[in-house]
């Protein structure tokens, strides 16, 4: 019932890679229901591609025989599924209450200025995507942010400059 024959959007599914398929198949053993695998598949594709394009979403829907509309509803609900391309490093900047008290507003302005982008945007060189994130659970060492998989604590403007140049040099997550 799910196969969409009326394709007025003109968008077509892409081919999933063998690695993606292997990862998705692995999840099928863990969850008793393919809908649960659907969300896992979104994460898997994002891990491999950096983000979830329409073509990827349709590919997952096709592979798991899940309605694309439903998958879209799931993909757009969660904030760690990116439905737009992101830069090489995703900066998750905590702007919740403890970090706010510890002065994250000033740091926010500093980052925006340094990278010359606003939240939700990607720097023109493709190095960084800046995204606000709710409390990262490290409030005793606020302000904090995550870049890729690394957590950076007790942030200051100087520290932020260092961090940015560190990732600019392509050193990435350890």
């Amino acid at each position: 019932m799910n196969k969409q024959i009326i394709a007025s959007s003109g968008q077509r599914a892409r081919q999933l890679t063998a690695a993606e398929i292997a990862d998705i198949d692995h999840e099928m053993g863990i969850y008793p229901d393919k809908q649960a695998v659907g969300l896992e598949a979104l994460k898997i594709v994002q891990k491999h591609q950096g983000w979830v394009s329409d073509e990827s979403l349709l590919a997952i829907a096709g592979y798991l025989d899940l309605p694309a509309a439903e998958l879209e509803g799931v993909a757009t609900f969660f904030n760690l599924i990116y439905r737009q391309p992101v830069g090489r490093n995703v900066m998750l900047f905590c702007d919740s209450v403890s970090c706010w008290i510890m002065g994250c507003e000033g740091l926010k302005a500093h980052i925006k200025e340094t990278l010359d982008i606003d939240f939700g945007e990607t720097s023109p060189d493709g190095d960084f995507t800046l995204i606000p994130v709710p409390c990262l659970g490290d409030c005793d060492r606020a302000p904090v942010m995550m870049v890729g998989e690394d957590l950076h604590r007790n942030l200051t403007t100087e520290k932020i400059d260092e961090i940015i140049s560190h990732y600019r040099r392509g050193e990435g997550s350890e």
Binding site: S8, S9, D54, P67, A68, A69, E70, L71, T76
Partner: peptide
């Protein structure tokens, strides 16, 4: 559309006060 009539191409998307009710992309309701 989905639960009662068994349709699959209309869904709720996004969250908080941005929730959106539509198809994955423009197209005929099936």
């Amino acid at each position: 559309y989905d639960d009662y009539a068994g349709g699959t191409d209309l869904s709720v998307q996004a969250s908080h006060h941005h929730v959106y009710f539509g198809r994955q992309a423009d197209g005929v309701l099936e």
